[in-house]
Computed example of a mutant assay.
Amino acid sequence: MTNAGASDARDRDTTGRARSARPRDGLGRPLPYGAEGVPRQPEGVLRAPVQTVAEAQALLTAGRPFHAHEVFEDAWKSGPEHERTLWRGLAQLAVGLTHAARGNAVGGARLLRRGAGAIEEWVAERGEERPYGLDLPGLAGWARELAGRVEQDAAPVDARAEAPRLGG
């Protein structure tokens, strides 16, 4: 039996999907209700690839990799099938940086390497290293280098200071 009041208390949308209304910090961590958070990134936005890259870069530069991850995720889920590996890999890089900044060294390093592998796979299959102005070899190198440092130091990183340049 479904109770509409319980559904509302659990922050669900009209289709029943979980949607936390709690405010979030710049790394996407939930804050207490009533706290002032950063604006949430709208989900399900259709953007041109160059808009995706520009918006994600602005968020990364601002130290908000969680939000950049959501921009890449929109492209991954709504873009053409042949580009999904690319966008998924970029989303994994952003969420890997998010975990590293939150102090999750194991998860951060794992996601950074997984994202690097996905974009390297995309380059190997397509032979294209700079789609939409992206520097894919540079991003893969950045991710692998950061993953090694994160594992070695096991301390949170500064997301703004570690933000990659998507184009080279």
Rank of each mutant, 00 (worst) to 15 (best):
A143L: 00
G168Y: 07
P32T: 03
P65L: 01
L112C: 03
A143M: 07
G107E: 07
A159D: 10
G37W: 07
L166G: 11
L97K: 06
G138I: 01
A109S: 15
A21F: 11
L27I: 04
D135F: 03
L166C: 05
G133W: 04
S20E: 10
A35W: 07
L97E: 12
E120K: 08
Q41S: 10
G133V: 10
A91W: 03
A118I: 00
Y132D: 13
A18H: 11
L31S: 06
E129K: 08
A94S: 11
P164Y: 09
T2W: 12
A21Q: 15
L112Q: 13
G148E: 12
T61N: 12
R19G: 00
W142E: 00
R88I: 01
R144Y: 01
E151K: 12
E129Y: 02
A48D: 12
E125G: 09
W142M: 00
K77D: 00
R24T: 11
R130V: 12
D8E: 13
A6K: 12
R160K: 15
A147C: 08
A161P: 13
R24G: 07
G138V: 07
G96Q: 07
A4R: 15
R24V: 14
P156M: 10
L93D: 02
H67L: 08
R64W: 01
V150P: 07
G44F: 08
E125L: 11
L93G: 05
A6H: 14
A62W: 08
E73P: 01
A18Q: 11
R47A: 01
R165N: 07
L46H: 09
A154G: 08
D25G: 06
E162Q: 14
R47E: 04
V53A: 04
A109G: 14
A9L: 12
E120Q: 13
R102S: 05
R84W: 03
H69C: 02
R47D: 04
R114T: 14
G148W: 06
R149W: 11
R102F: 04
F72Q: 02
Y33W: 13
W122V: 01
A140K: 01
G127R: 05
A4S: 13
E70D: 14
P30F: 08
A6S: 14
Q51W: 00
D135M: 06
V71I: 11
P39Y: 12
E43D: 14
A105H: 12
E121H: 13
A154F: 05
P39E: 15
R29P: 03
A35P: 10
L93W: 02
H99M: 10
A155T: 15
E162P: 12
